[in-house]
Structures are given as C-alpha cells and as structure tokens.
C-alpha cells in the first residue's frame, strides 16, 4: 500500500503525458495541460517544505548551542526578515493590493542590498576558479589532455587582439588557420559533433530511466516498505 499507490500514480501520470504527445484529443490534452499547472503549484509547496526544514535544522543548532550556533542565528534572522517583509508586504506602496516587490518595499530593499550582491559575488568567484583550474589542468600530459588543451587555447585566444595578430598575415589559402576562423570551425565542427553524440547518449539514458521509473523498476527513491 505504501509503495503500490505511489507506483501507480507515477505510472498513470507518466503514461498520460507520453500518450498526450501523440493523441491530442480529450482527455489527454486536458491532462497534459493540468498536470503542468499542478506541477507548478506543488513546486511552491516544496519551497515551503524546504524552508520548514531549514528552520528545523538551525533552530535545533541554536537550542543545543552546538558549534557555530551564532551563525545559525544569522540564518534564522535573515530568513524571517525576508519572509516577513515579503508575505506581509511591508512598505509596499498601496498596501495589500500593491506589488510585493515594488520600489520602496522592504522586500525589494533586502533583495537589492543583500540577496543580489551575495548571489552575484558568489557567482563571480568562478572567474578566479576558471583561471586556477586551467593553470592546473591544461597540461599536455596525455594525448587526450593535449587535445583538450589545444582546443581550449585557440578558443581562449579568439576574443583577444593577440589571436588576430598572430595569424592575420596568413595567405588566402591558409586563412582557415586564422584564429577567428579556426575557433569558429572548432566550435561548429568537432565541438558540435561531440556535443551531439553526448546529447544522443543522454537522450537514450533519459528515455530508459524514464521508462524504468514509469514501469516501477527503478524505485529506490521510494525507500523501504516500513513506516516513515
């Protein structure tokens, strides 16, 4: 019972969506449409579940006064500050009928001064890591590594004047070796071939995994038959 009903739900939903692809007629068109909408709504409940769990973990840390509990307090305060500002529409011009992230609202203020800079800065760390990774990894140790290195090197040169001046003097029949031309060729020929093969492989992997899920062969996500 605890596993058979979920397996049945997965089967029915999965099959209905696949069939809807080929049979546009009622009821599959309606199911296809509504399942998408339902999924969107359930996704929001997942946010709530996530928030609930986050609080559970950090409140427990604060109660136990475990290591770094003061930082957990920062998480909890940040969480309630943003949630309160957003759900209660604090500072929104026009009150309840206003836009929750209108200019002047506390929610937008917190977004601009904390969320946005934190996100963008975390992301920008990549510029540093890309450099350190290429320094370490792009060494001609094996034939595979050399191919990786050469392709990356040519593409890296592409937006720089160096790439242009290194090869612009090449005579017409050898112009295909000019860095901008060569990099376009690498992107649209070998890169494309590799990406395409990966895509085909992945598509097959996804098709077969989906099939296993629908047929109930792959079910480790459902856990055990026991309670909880």
């Amino acid at each position: 019972m605890k596993r058979s009903i979920p397996l049945l739900i997965t089967f029915l939903v999965g099959v209905a969506l696949i069939v809807a692809m080929f049979i546009p007629h009622w009821p599959f068109d309606v199911l296809n449409q509504n399942f998408s909408v339902f999924y969107d709504i359930i996704a929001v409940f997942a946010f709530i579940l996530g928030g609930g769990n986050l609080l559970k973990v950090h409140i427990r840390k604060v109660q136990r006064k475990g290591g770094d509990w003061k930082y957990s307090l920062v998480t909890i305060i940040g969480f309630f500050l943003v949630l309160g500002a957003g759900l209660l529409k604090i500072g929104v011009p026009g009150g309840w009928s206003g836009d929750y992230q209108a200019t002047g609202s506390l929610f937008k203020y917190l977004y601009d001064s904390a969320f946005q800079p934190l996100q963008a800065t975390m992301f920008s760390l990549l510029a540093f890591f890309v450099a350190s990774a290429s320094y370490r990894a792009f060494r001609a140790k094996t034939r595979e590594a050399t191919i990786l290195l050469v392709a990356a090197f040519i593409i890296l040169l592409r937006p720089t004047p160096l790439g242009y001046y290194l090869t612009f003097w090449l005579p017409e029949p050898l112009q295909f070796l000019h860095v901008p031309n060569l990099s376009t060729w690498i992107l649209s020929v070998p890169n494309m071939a590799g990406q395409r093969a990966i895509m085909i492989g992945i598509a097959l992997g996804i098709v077969s995994t989906s099939l296993r899920l629908i047929l109930g062969i792959e079910r480790s996500y459902l856990g055990s038959e026991g309670k909880g």
Binding site: A46, F47, Y221, G223, S224
Partner: peptide
C-alpha cells in the same frame, strides 16, 4: 526539499 525527502528514503533503505 523534494530531493531531501527522496534522499532520506534512499539512504535509510
């Protein structure tokens, strides 16, 4: 959070 739910089921099993 849904990955957490499935992850717990998986690891517990």
């Amino acid at each position: 959070s849904i990955v957490m739910s499935t992850g717990r089921e998986t690891v517990k099993q």
